[in-house]
Design a binder for these strands. Sequence first.
DNA 1: CAAGGTGCTTCAGTGCCATAATACAGCCAC
DNA 2: GTGGCTGTATTATGGCACTGAAGCACCTTG
Lengths: 112, 112
Amino acid sequence: MSPNRPVYLKLRDQIAAAIMLGKYPEGAMLPSVRALAAEQGANPLTVAKAYQQFQNDGLVEVQRGVGMYVVKGAAERLRAAERETFLQQEWPEIRERMKQLGLNPADLMQRG
Amino acid sequence: MSPNRPVYLKLRDQIAAAIMLGKYPEGAMLPSVRALAAEQGANPLTVAKAYQQFQNDGLVEVQRGVGMYVVKGAAERLRAAERETFLQQEWPEIRERMKQLGLNPADLMQRG
DNA sequence: CAAGGTGCTTCAGTGCCATAATACAGCCAC
DNA sequence: GTGGCTGTATTATGGCACTGAAGCACCTTG
C-alpha cells in the first residue's frame, strides 16, 4: 500500500514527529541538510526537499548561511494541522472501511 | 497521502468490494478486461493488472479464451483477508498515529 | 474453417523519485 | 581576508511504476 513511500516524505514525517515530541524545541536549530543526509544515508537534495515542506508552511525559519530554526509555536501548529488532516480525511475513510468489513470501533477499543 | 493511488489498485478495491457485496456471486463471470476498461475509461492492461491480483490469490478462475469466474467462497475469503490485513497492519498504525496526536478512539466514537 | 470474443504478452512512452557532481550565495570564527 | 560551515540552484543520470497501443494465443460459436 504505502511501503514504497518516497524518502523525502518519510523524512518529512520523521522530522515532524521529532518537532512535535520536543526533540527540536522552539528556537532550536535543525540538523543541517548535509548532516541529516549523512546520518540517514540519503542525498542532501532529498533532505532539502523534506525541509522545503516546513518552510512553505512557515514552521521553520531559514537563516541562509547559518541554519534552519524551529519557529515559535511550530509544534502546536504542526499538531493542530495533523489532527485536522486526520479527522477530516483519514478518519472518515477508516470508518467507511470498517463499516464495509463489518468491524466496530467499540470492539477494537477492547484490544490493543 | 493516497489521492494519487494507482488506477489498477483503485480498480482492484472496487472489484473486491463488488464481490464482497454480492454483485458478482460465486460462479459468475466478471466483466471482460476490455468491457470494464471501456466502462471505466481505463486501459485494458490496467484492468488486467487489477484482475491479476485476484488470480494470484486464487479468488477467480481463468478460462482462457472464455472469461474469468468468481471462485466458490471468494467473497468470504476476501472479507476474511481484508479483515486480517486491517487488524494486523492498518489498525496498529492508526492507533499509533492517534496516540501521537493525542486523540482517543473513545472521543471519535461519539462523533461520526 | 472463419469470426468474434476471451486473457495475455511485448514494446514503447511518460512522469516521479532519487542520486550525483558542481557551483553559487550567505554567515561566522579565526 | 580565509576557511569552513550553512542553504540553494543547476544539470545530468538511472531506476521504477504507471499507462498506452498493438498483436499474439486461446476458446466458443456458427
